[in-house]
Design a protein around this nucleic acid. Structure first.
Lengths: 201, 201
DNA sequence: GCCTGTGAAGCTATTCACAGCT
DNA sequence: AGCTGTGAATAGCTTCACAGGC
């Protein structure tokens, strides 16, 4: 079993390594550490987890390592995502993620505002909440992004889970409760600012 | 010394407690734990850190506890923030944070696009990068939000730090390097999606 | 009986340090 | 000489479990 933190770093290694392909065939753990601001032993530990083994003379083969991490993360591409709450943040995320196609696709979005229903917002069609079960099933979406107002967030999560979503990214400032078969990531933008305020003194 | 994790939770307690003011004068650790999805002993440990002590009969006095956490976090309100990179995400954050006034203010934003300079975007005037040192000094901004393209992010951070910022929130997908007197928080939206993809299977 | 406060235990994550290889 | 792979040590974080109080 690989820890949450290691997965986080593997994703970062993958991304950083992709930009290093042009700079040589091999990379040392201390170089990858420098690029990511982790420690060299941390890097080597993490690579143990994916089972990739380098060589002592040259370090790690960049392309092979990327493939190995990809295989380990085993993303059945593309990941289909839905977004609920097409406000300002929701719209910005729709555009942000539409630029990352085809790795990830927001395949649909939902809102309660009648005037938005049926519109396409950065390639994603907007549906009513009532359509959620059907749309999620049809599009095989596994991940939901919540950008609704705080009072509607828990209800939104419940709807998403009922419709079959197993991963949630919640931008509303509360700790949504989910069964432990569901993975949830909280991104509380106001709490992040407060934290930076505290530690930046 | 109080840990990063504890600070994170204190901020959450503060927020949750503010919504509980109407529901009674006192709150038990297990109730606060339920609202936040942390454990009761975690809650009690964290409150030890701020030095607030409840009573065995009623638990914690909500208003007193909020005041105590606020005092502990010691935010010299308002925190002045600047944002660099007025793209889609930048604009969405400008609007998001302008709604949280007056706790936090984005007092200025910066961009390289000439057509944006001088405009007000959700109460924040847009300046050129060259104005950054003066504006940050004049507005006494201590925190910078980076929403520029990945290739410009490190240079942007360096400029912010030179201008006197001590805390950074970085939305660009790379691990910006900063001196260890500077606090930085990385929010990599594409990495977050990958992580949820991994754990939601 | 049920709460808080907290030492001690348990668990997780990171770093050290070095054997083994080239 | 300088790298990787990894057992062992350390550091950091969370939970247990219970004394003491209402």
């Amino acid at each position: 079993m690989v820890s949450n933190k290691t997965i986080e770093r593997l994703i970062i290694y993958k991304f950083i390594l992709q930009k290093e392909i042009g700079n040589g065939t091999f990379i040392f753990s201390h170089k990858l550490a420098e690029l990511t601001n982790f420690s060299p032993s941390q890097v080597r530990r993490d690579l143990m987890a994916v089972g990739y083994t380098g060589n002592q003379k040259n370090g790690y083969n960049i392309k092979e390592l990327i493939e190995c991490i990809k295989k380990f993360l085993d993303q059945p591409v593309p990941l289909n995502i839905v977004l609920v709450g097409v406000g300002n943040l929701g719209k910005a995320l729709l555009r942000y993620y539409s630029a990352l196609r085809p790795d990830y696709s927001i395949v649909a979005c939902f809102d309660t505002d009648e005037s938005k229903i049926g519109n396409f917002i950065h390639y994603s069609k907007c549906y009513t909440l009532a359509d959620m079960p059907d749309v999620i099933k049809e599009k095989e979406a596994r991940c939901g992004i919540i950008t609704v107002p705080v009072d509607a967030a828990q209800k939104t999560a419940d709807l998403l889970i009922d419709a079959g979503v197993t991963g949630i990214i919640n931008f509303a400032p509360l700790r949504i409760k989910v069964p432990d078969t569901i993975y949830i990531e909280h991104i509380d933008l106001s709490a992040i600012v407060e934290k930076v305020a505290y530690f930046s003194r």
